[in-house]
């Protein structure tokens, strides 16, 4: 029998290819530790930065045991944070058994003086990651803010890490406002506030009235009605004299902004979203509102646009909890 070597070419080629793909990678080398104090930082929070909200960072610092221990960690913001700004005094590790981050106390609670927040270590620590929570102040609206994280070790070494700049939205945000039928009833977009029925309110500022009504034939339940809406939709509600705003509304469902809902959905309403909403021919009343639903709002004078997210409705208590993002259009 005569062997035709040419017919074996594809097989040989295949074997060569297999051999090449199995070639061993270069051996891995463990990186050598730098003999100095080091640091690193990440921004943990996502979404637009809004006055009234938080920006969260995780700042890590470490040094070899031979070079001493950590003494202090500090954050300097270009604009002083509002009350509630702090640098953690706990370092965290993830526990597989408990399936959560477990805190380890490293010092006393941080002290904020002006733009600077400092945590001083009281435990002998050579590596730590501290979380920093910056409460965005009102005066930062429309500006950008930068942060300088720094750490000090017992041998006098200093390191620093710059983060930002981060743009602060012109939006406002208010969380967990409680509205109750017949009591905390009025909502003012301009004031971002819920007013009680018996409270003295500037009637021109009432944009929405909350009510809970039931009917044997219709689905009314939780409703938001503007004072200037057709009378039949105001039901039996007596609108205070001078309140006549026709606020435009656009009902939504499942638009669960993460900052308002604080649920697992990675959805964020930004300035651009407010600009994109078309309020032409939108009604001034909404009935049968449900939890995790919401509504886009435009005030009668067109000055503000807002998104009201409904965190919770309670039929028995005739109330609902709302969280609001507001954008000034003009």
């Amino acid at each position: 029998m005569r062997i035709n070597f040419r017919s074996y070419t594809p097989a040989l080629f295949g074997i060569m290819l297999l051999a090449a793909s199995c070639a061993k990678d270069d051996a891995y080398e463990t990186p050598t530790t730098k003999d100095q104090l080091q640091n690193d930082c990440i921004k943990r929070s996502t979404g637009p930065n809004i006055s009234g909200g938080m920006i969260e960072f995780a700042y890590a610092m470490a040094l070899p045991a031979s070079r001493g221990k950590l003494v202090s960690a500090q954050v300097e913001a270009s604009i002083a944070g509002a009350s509630g700004t702090y640098l953690e005094n706990n370092s965290y590790y993830y526990s597989i058994e408990q399936q959560k981050d477990v805190p380890v106390k490293i010092g006393e609670p941080s002290v904020t003086t002006g733009t600077t927040t400092v945590t001083t270590f009281t435990k002998d620590t050579m590596a730590s990651t501290l979380r920093f929570f910056y409460q965005i102040p009102e005066e930062a609206k429309g500006k950008s803010v930068t942060f300088t994280f720094s750490a000090k070790s017992s041998n006098g070494e200093n390191v620093s890490y710059k983060m930002g700049p981060y743009e602060i939205s012109t939006m406002d945000m208010k969380l967990d406002l409680n509205m109750t039928d017949g009591d905390s009833t009025y909502f003012s977009v301009a004031d971002m506030k819920v007013y009680a029925k018996n409270q003295t309110v500037d009637a021109s500022k009432i944009d929405l009235i909350y009510m809970y009504r039931t009917s044997a034939t219709a689905s009314l339940k939780h409703a938001l009605v503007s004072p200037g809406a057709p009378k039949e939709y105001l039901q039996d509600f007596v609108v205070p004299g001078g309140a006549a705003n026709v606020t435009k509304l656009m009902k939504t469902f499942n638009l669960r902004d993460q900052q308002l809902a604080r649920l697992q959905y990675g959805v964020f309403i930004t300035d651009l979203d407010f600009k994109a909403v078309d309020f032409t021919n939108q009604p001034s009343y909404l009935f049968n509102l449900k939890g995790e639903g919401g509504t886009w709002v435009e005030t009668a004078d067109g000055k503000y646009r807002a998104y009201i997210y409904i965190n919770k409705v309670d039929d028995a208590k005739k109330s609902m909890v709302i969280s609001v993002k507001r954008y000034q259009v003009k």
Binding site: A218, L220, M250, N281
Partner: peptide
């Protein structure tokens, strides 16, 4: 349709 439904949209 439900009472109060926005018939324009």
């Amino acid at each position: 349709v439900f009472y109060g439904a926005d018939l324009k949209n």
